[in-house]
Amino acid sequence: MTRPDILVLGIGNTLLGDEGVGVHVVRALMESPAPPGVQYLDGGTGSLVLLEPMQEARRIILVDATADGNPPGTLQRIVPKYASDFPSSLAAHDIGLKDLLDSFYLLGQEPPDMVLYTLSIALPQDMTTELSPALAVAAPLAAYTILMEELPG
């Protein structure tokens, strides 16, 4: 596989309703072919498996849910500087995104150029594969925003 210039990585658990919205956003993007140099990745609940694709990309657009208290569906763009800028794990990965970022430092690499898109959700989430009405609207809008604002072409 050729190295992607930009990696759009959606993470979350699609069995936990809105918690999986990051994956839903990437799936919406995948409905059209990716622009040249762009890779879409459904990161699901993968953890250390994501280290290599993250290391290989020049720039990462990360999409995840956050329980930050804002109205469900609120989209925010964050340029994270510290691990603490990331949404606190809603239900922690075994080895979370913060640990993956720490791994960059520990392996002596510069942290990647990264933009984080968060979609606010309410907690707790039920076991369902469906998004709530607010997030079902917000997910394709987030995909459209990422396509227009972050990706070439």
């Binding site: 069995l15 699901g44 609940t45 953890s47 075994d94 076991m127």
Partner: peptide, 26 residues
């Protein structure tokens, strides 16, 4: 409650749902 998610689905699709139950041993 994965059991509730699977009820009524095509058995041939079940693996794709259960695979996401756990991030570690998918």
């Amino acid at each position: 409650g994965i059991e509730k998610i699977l009820k009524g689905r095509d058995p041939r699709d079940a693996w794709a749902f259960t695979e996401r139950v756990c991030g570690v041993c998918t």
